[in-house]
Design a protein around this nucleic acid. Structure first.
Length: 639
DNA sequence: GTTCTTAAAA
């Protein structure tokens, strides 16, 4: 391609005379060859030599070039005034190009201004505007525009609908999605072999949480490309069907005959990390190493390395993550952030702080995500002073304005240490209105420290922001129960029921030899149930003999002490542990996961089992990893 | 000649 362009260049530069038409054609072919700076240089040289000025066919190509060369907004603006002077600003091709250029630079105002000035608008212009608006986060405006099209009687094309599906998958409006699906069927848009629309439709269903529909669409795509596969894999991952996602990845290679690329690998490494399956992770690592060739850019490789570090942390192999990190030549802010959050999630708080300071020393400026990572790490370690210092440095030293999420970290940091008043003061002093997550963080710790008064207030504020958040009711009711306020407890439960809200059901899983076993509360349907409960009882007995206190505050009030301990045996993480111990007692390492925070009593039991049965157990909850070795946990009993 | 789908870290 490049070679051919050289010939074209020689041809044009040797011409005695060249028309604007001729140069435009040359410019477009350069554009296709993917070397924008060369294209621009050659064009400028030739147009200068032949004394040719850009005409209305040149501008769109120039805009494309400027976009590729990451030229600033100003360059687009000068092309706009040039077009205005020459009387072709309202040409649809030029306006579309300008609007695309502006929206890629987040200059939505300039784009919008031009858009409303246009005397005539067509479907392409609308589509470009819809796309750009949604990329800039103006989903509502983009959807409004789509309906405005209808009023102006402009028919959407498959491209328009694909863009709208992408918006729908962000705002999760599945009803609108189904409606448009019907529209596509009526128009025959889905009969074409073009995979783009089908993929965007499938992606929409996946993102809206309907895996069945996503699958149906996927089955009908005839020409599946990398994006289609990636999309369906991500749908399985977000649904939690991790091993099926890994299976799809293999199908893609062996049945789809496609060579995976960086984005596929990052999705699949993410899936692998979520399974906490280290063996699978190592296998993937080896495979990826084999696949990397000259087609991969340096940036691709960096992205892959970052995803690999993340995978090693998530599968519990902190040493491999560290070694791999140390050996990396090129590191960006994501590399460091991945490292910090990985160390944080495994309770290596001091190491995370070290990494954070090494990052700064190496000349990389922390961004908003890096701050979330380090503040979260401080949370897990309960390092209030260090966390506060870093929080203050955000604005003062690094010019990063704290956002809601950083405040959530700080409120959490204070409250977890029982500094509830300090947390409350911070909330009062916030420069914007606190979100329900802020109140939720405070409420959750009011529960741990049994501060009914502040807890009630936090719950009230959270419910004002979202009356239908089941989590708030659950936390408040637990606060009441654990503080002995049974009447209030019943009231909250009743209020919940009347709103038709149900608490999230707890479940745990254990993954042994490539199979996942899932457990829900008090489950007794399993063939091994009897042995499992016997095991848990014997552990209880041994703990009693060892004089270990059980934390029963979690259980309902109208039980005897013995019954309470019995009820605790129904906790899902204990069931997963018991199952693994009964069925696979010889395994030295166990990996268990839970969808909610681990309870105090279960944590004690895990520690005890790791000591008495000489096991190493990794327990993953939604926030972090616990690693139990010889009666201790890496979280130091603070989580 | 202009518009479209997926995408690493919290």
């Amino acid at each position: 391609m490049h070679h051919w362009n050289c010939k074209l260049y020689i041809y044009i530069s040797e011409m005695k005379q060249a028309s604007a038409f001729c140069l435009n054609t040359a410019l477009r072919s350069y554009l296709k060859s993917g070397n924008p700076s060369l294209a621009l240089n050659h064009y400028l040289e030739a147009s200068h030599k032949h004394g040719v000025t850009p005409d209305k066919f040149t501008i769109p190509s120039l805009l494309k070039l400027f976009l590729h060369l990451r030229y600033p907004v100003k360059r687009g603006e000068s092309l706009q005034s040039f077009s205005l002077k020459n009387g072709f600003l309202y040409d649809l091709f030029i306006a579309t190009g300008l609007i695309e250029f502006y929206l890629k630079h987040a200059a939505s105002d300039s784009a919008h201004k031009l858009f409303v000035e246009m005397p005539k608008r067509d479907v392409v212009l609308f589509t470009a505007m819809i796309c750009g608006l949604s990329e800039n986060g103006f989903r509502k405006a983009a959807l409004d525009l789509f309906f405005e099209m209808k009023e102006e009687r402009i028919e959407p094309t498959a491209m328009t609908i694909a863009a709208v599906f992408s918006i729908i998958s962000q705002c999760k409006n599945i009803d609108l999605g189904r409606m448009l699906h019907g529209f596509c069927l009526r128009k025959g848009f889905l009969n074409k072999e073009d995979a783009v629309l089908q993929t965007s439709l499938m992606d929409m269903y996946g993102k809206c949480g309907n895996l069945v529909y996503a699958n149906n669409v996927f089955d009908k795509i005839t020409e599946r490309n990398l994006v289609s596969w990636n999309s369906i894999i991500n749908a399985y991952v977000s649904h939690g069907s991790l091993y099926l996602a890994l299976k799809l990845f293999q199908e893609m290679i062996f049945q789809g005959w496609l060579r995976p690329k960086t984005s596929t690998f990052t999705s699949i490494l993410n899936a692998c990390g979520l399974t906490t399956d280290l063996l699978k992770g190592r296998e993937l690592h080896a495979y990826i190493t084999k696949c990397i060739d000259a087609d991969y850019t340096e940036f691709d490789k960096l992205v892959l390395c970052n995803a690999l570090i993340d995978m090693y942390f998530k599968t519990g192999d902190c040493d491999s993550a560290q070694t791999f990190f140390d050996e990396m030549q090129m590191k960006n802010v994501v590399t460091w952030t991945t490292m910090i959050s990985g160390q944080g999630s495994h309770g290596l708080t001091r190491r995370a702080l070290e990494t954070f300071h090494r990052m700064i020393a190496s000349g990389i400026k922390p961004d908003r995500v890096a701050f979330v990572a380090i503040l979260t790490a401080c949370n897990h370690g309960g390092l209030v002073k260090e966390g506060r210092q870093i929080f203050d440095s955000m604005e003062n030293e690094f010019n990063v304005s704290p956002e809601m999420i950083h405040y959530v970290c700080m409120v959490d940091l204070y409250s977890r240490r029982g500094l509830l008043e300090e947390a409350h003061i911070l909330i009062k002093d916030m420069p914007f209105e606190p979100s329900k997550e802020i109140w939720g963080a405070l409420l959750s710790c009011c529960r741990s420290y049994r501060n009914v008064q502040l807890g009630e207030y936090a719950a009230k504020m959270a419910l004002e922001l979202d009356k239908f958040d089941a989590g708030t009711y659950v936390l408040l009711s637990r606060l009441y129960v654990e503080s002995g306020r049974l009447e209030e407890f019943s009231k909250v439960r009743l209020a919940m029921q009347q709103l038709g809200l149900r608490p999230i059901r707890a479940f745990s899983w254990v993954e042994i030899k490539n199979k996942v076993y899932k457990f829900t509360v008090g489950e007794r349907f399993n063939e091994s149930s009897k042995e499992m409960y016997e095991f848990l009882e014997s552990v209880s007995l041994k703990m009693e003999e060892a004089g270990i206190q059980r934390d029963v505050s979690n259980v309902g009030h109208d039980f005897s002490k013995r019954e309470k301990v019995g009820a605790l045996c129904g906790h899902t993480e204990k069931l997963a542990l018991a199952f693994a111990m009964v069925k696979f007692g010889s395994m030295k390492n166990l990996r268990i996961g839970k969808n909610l925070r681990v309870c105090i009593d279960c944590h004690e039991v895990f520690k005890f089992v790791s000591l008495v049965y000489e096991k190493e157990i990794v327990l993953k909850d939604p926030n972090r990893y616990h690693r139990f070795i010889r009666g201790h946990c890496t979280c130091n009993d603070f989580w």
